[in-house]
Design a binder for these strands. Structure first.
Lengths: 106, 106
DNA sequence: CGAATGCGTAAGCAGAGACTTACACATCTG
DNA sequence: CAGATGTGTAAGTCTCTGCTTACGCATTCG
């Protein structure tokens, strides 16, 4: 989710949507420095939104469409299905008990 | 999009999904300070994800479901429909012309 | 009125995030 | 092997974000 929050990363994702591309090719599409793109690519791969394939010195990147769809489905679920359970969970916060857990619900 | 990137804001959104709630009620659901929630509510209202209604000294918040669905639709479009145009636009970056605009594509 | 309630805003701070330049490393190529 | 090529990593900077405390401003209520 956070990976998609950045516009540059969204652009990158679209670039490698149907064509495999090398890091250099991708970087050439932007004005910013190559390392910056490399870091964005790292975020995207960590989020499993793209896959990498090494070929010689080059690294080919490709999007993983199923992951984006996963995210869209999650967004749907977030909003409709299972809402009641989630809401109840959120409301539990209203009566804090001693076992206070880190604030990182879905 | 950025508004949904924060987990606290997502929780708030769910809280006011089907019930109108006051700022105080919402704040009581979290461990963090009330002003912090107030700021999150501001982000959400700025993003038109919730509406506010003043009643006396209280402020009632409610989610705008259509906006979330809008976002989900956007995500779908982002990934499927209109992809070619968007991709072409992104690739234009490859040949930067003098009129360089701020890096903020979709 | 004046105090109390319910909120938002201001200001400050610590940490995260998106860049940069400089560098390291692997792989091809002569 | 040595240089060139393609790429990731390190380290530093600047800005944004999410919090906090302190305060200000309406509204209600005694």
């Amino acid at each position: 989710m956070r990976a998609l929050a950045d516009p540059t990363r969204r652009s990158i994702l679209r670039l490698v949507h149907d064509d495999e591309r090398t890091a250099g090719e991708i970087a050439a599409s932007f004005t910013m420095s190559r390392p910056a793109i490399s870091q964005h690519l790292r975020v995207l791969t960590d989020a499993d939104l793209v896959t990498v394939r090494s070929e010689g010195t080059r690294r080919w990147y490709r999007a993983r469409p199923e992951r984006v769809e996963e995210l869209r489905d999650w967004l749907t679920d977030f909003w409709t299905a299972g809402l009641d359970e989630l809401k109840r969970a959120a409301e539990q916060e209203e009566w804090p008990d001693r076992a206070r857990r880190r604030q990182e619900p879905t």
